[in-house]
Computed example of a mutant assay.
Amino acid sequence: MAVYTQLHEDDLNQFLRDFDLGFLVNFKGIEGGIENTNYFLSLEKQGIQKEYVLTLFEELNYEELPYFVELCQWLSDRDIDVPFAIHDRNGIGLKKLKNRPAAIQPRFYGEHVGQSELTAEHCAAIGKVLGEFHVAAADFYLKRQAHRGVFWWRRESELIAPKLSTDDQKLLKEEVQRFDQLRDNPSDIKVGTIHGDLFHDNVLFQGTDVSAVLDLYNAATGFLLFDLAIVANDWCSNPDGSIDHQREEALLKAYNEARPFTEGDREAWAVLSCTAAMRFWLSRLIPWLDQNSEQKLKDPDELKRILLFRRQHPSQLPD
């Protein structure tokens, strides 16, 4: 989260007139993140003060956002703790402020847990929640192609190849081909709505319990197991790229209890755990190799180390 669009008290008071949430007590910009502008709002109604988050969408446009608004409402209605757009008096959740799409959402409380501090208990908690997320979204009525999915990584891996070493070119090409082979023969691998970016910093905890899953703006239709692999690679990895068996076992067992694995899932896990590492290795490589990039850069070698470990030491899903 970050503040790209500056707001003043008058802007907010005018915006809040459409809602029945009370009057503005104070507000504060939320620093950090790279995509949207976010503010904490304190509103008072009938002597009771409540906290909200106001989001101004800096990259997604009005045509793209209804999918995410509907998904978050769908999940919240099914007891998945995700931010959702609060409706105004006319039943409208997606609004406009400073010529940008905007939404007011409930504020969730909790703490981000650093990657080095994640335990098997944290991993079990997110495994359970992700399984419940996938079950709750199983009959969600909208579909979306991931903007950095298979077509993106096919194209970008070709474009970036001349900038890579021969070994890295080969590694990237092999992983793209492995996924294509899997996609052409998917067996009974479950497909549905995925979060798409469930790294540890997109979750709030109270103790070892998940209090909220945040930032669903990479959600799409895809292999559910790919979503789980993103989590496993981030939540269960060590600095050298190896996977902590205890944390991964806790994650996978808890997920399996919420959404049982299919036989196709078990056959595909070794490939998809590599695919997930490849996808984020590639997305980090692109700005890393662009000397004109102004993005906050994350080390692509972190994901490359995980990918190499996954290839050499494939894990298995529990029964």
Results as ranks from 00 to 15, higher is better:
E174C: 05
E158V: 13
K190P: 03
E158G: 11
R100V: 05
A125G: 10
G91L: 07
R144H: 10
A124W: 06
D139P: 07
D79H: 15
D197F: 03
S116E: 14
E132R: 15
F151M: 04
L182A: 08
S76L: 00
H122V: 11
L118M: 02
E175R: 07
P186D: 09
F140M: 00
P186S: 07
N90V: 00
K163I: 02
A125Q: 08
G192D: 01
T166Q: 13
D79V: 07
L130R: 11
R178Q: 13
Y109K: 14
A161S: 11
K128R: 14
D180W: 05
A146V: 05
L130G: 03
L97F: 01
Q177I: 13
K128F: 06
P101G: 06
H134G: 02
H122Q: 03
S187V: 06
R100L: 06
H87F: 04
L171P: 11
L204G: 00
K163Q: 15
R144W: 06
G110F: 08
R89C: 07
V135K: 15
P186Y: 09
Q145V: 15
A124I: 06
F108W: 02
A102M: 00
F151N: 09
P101I: 06
R78M: 00
D81F: 00
R78H: 01
H147A: 09
E132F: 02
G196N: 01
I86F: 06
G192C: 08
I189K: 01
A124Q: 08
P106T: 07
N90D: 14
L164W: 10
V82T: 15
Y141P: 01
A138K: 13
L142G: 04
I194A: 03
D188Y: 10
G127M: 12
A137W: 08
S165E: 10
I160C: 12
S76H: 05
F179A: 02
R107H: 13
L204W: 08
D81V: 02
G114N: 10
V150C: 03
V129Q: 13
H195S: 04
D77M: 03
L142C: 05
D139W: 11
